[in-house]
């Protein structure tokens, strides 16, 4: 049994006088301990809302969450506020994209890191502060004792992200969710943070859910990758299989539309037509079909179901690409 099991998770935003928005529409995935699972997709695909639902951080008003989120055998959806508070920060924690808004600007860093341990591990302030110092040292912040007395504006972007990771790890959580942890950072700092996360997963056996739009980050970090489009998982595979031969036209399109450092220069890029706003609802057909180069008439009439197409490989497509050709050019009309 995996550490985290998400089944048919659906999140709908309900507002009076406006149509209901299904941000996440039946998402299922597993995260075993010590593994890194990626949720990949573009803006609006539901990857962040999925993570907020797993962490119980969505507002209660105007949000309908259904399905099941099981962490280590315990169903999380439907827990009381107090139960959530007990688990968040101790059993599961999260690192956000923007470290500046995630840190309290008027509280010294040391107090923010140590209060997690005082609260969940029952440490005294003095013990917790000592522990915080070694945590900051562990995540690569130089001169941690001085930094504990500083405020978030005194730290650089990379340093702030390290501090957040230190806070997230303070209670040795079994599940860590990182939502675009390096998107706001420069590449050389991104490389530092990613290698830190990689080490931590290997060392502590924490299960990591990595949410990102960057396929390069996914290729280097994730054991297993879920590609989301318009609130549903359209393809799921081991990273080697996925990048070697993407089966869903959307995955293939994403891979072909990014300029890469390791391919010949000067080729015209092959973008995906249109934008996410051209989607059709999943209830009608495949949401991606209006932008899809291999769309068939059936794609806009019937919603494709998830099929298992190989070991650990799931696909939601009426007209998938061939296994040996990772190419949208193969026309089907």
């Amino acid at each position: 049994m995996a550490l985290l099991e998400v089944r048919d998770l659906a999140v709908r935003f309900v507002r009076r006088g406006e149509p209901t928005v299904a941000a996440v529409d039946g998402v299922s995935f597993d995260v075993p301990a010590g593994r890194t699972v990626g949720l990949v997709g573009e803006s609006g695909c539901g990857k962040s809302v999925t993570s907020l639902a797993v962490m119980g951080l969505l507002p209660r008003d105007g949000t309908e969450v259904s399905g099941s989120v099981v962490l280590d055998g315990t169903e999380l959806l439907g827990l009381s506020r107090r139960e959530w508070d007990r688990r968040r920060g101790s059993e599961m924690s999260m690192v956000f994209q923007d470290p500046l808004t995630s840190l309290n600007p008027v509280v010294p860093l040391g107090i923010q890191v140590s209060e997690v341990m005082e609260r969940h591990r029952g440490m005294s302030r003095r013990v917790a502060t000592r522990e915080a110092e070694s945590l900051l040292d562990r995540v690569g912040i130089p001169d941690p004792r001085r930094r504990l007395r500083e405020y978030s504006h005194q730290l650089s972007g990379g340093m702030r992200q390290r501090a957040l990771i230190a806070m997230a790890l303070a209670c040795r959580p079994r599940l860590l969710i990182a939502d675009e942890p390096t998107t706001a950072l420069d590449v050389t700092i991104q490389a530092q943070i990613l290698s830190l996360l990689r080490e931590l997963v290997a060392e502590t056996g924490t299960a990591l859910v990595l949410i990102t739009h960057d396929l390069g980050v996914v290729a280097g970090m994730c054991d297993e990758v879920n590609v989301l489009y318009a609130g549903r998982i359209v393809e799921c595979a081991d990273r080697h299989a996925l990048f070697a031969a993407p089966r869903h036209p959307y995955t293939a399109g994403l891979l072909e539309s990014v300029p890469r450092l390791d391919t010949p220069r000067g080729q015209r890029l092959a973008p995906i037509a249109g934008s996410v706003e051209d989607n059709i609802p999943w209830s009608v057909g495949c949401a991606f079909s209006p932008r899809c180069a291999s769309a068939l008439p059936v794609c806009s009439e019937r919603s494709p179901a998830v099929e298992t197409v190989g070991p650990g490989r799931l696909l939601r497509c009426h007209n998938p690409l061939d296994t040996d050709v990772g190419n949208t050019e193969s026309s089907h009309d």
């Binding site: 130089p142 650089s156 990379g158 340093m159 420069d186 590449v187 050389t188 700092i189 991104q190 490389a191 530092q192 990613l194 290698s195 960057d214 396929l215 390069g216 980050v217 996914v218 290729a219 280097g220 990273r239 080697h240 990048f243 891979l255 990014v258 890469r260 450092l261 390791d262």
Partner: peptide, 27 residues
Amino acid sequence: RALLSAVPVPDPEVEDRRERILLPGDL
């Protein structure tokens, strides 16, 4: 060299093999 080695490449085979030059510290 460090900058180029830090850019993630969307190919797991490349990512696993390549050598990274990790720069210490910040700008």
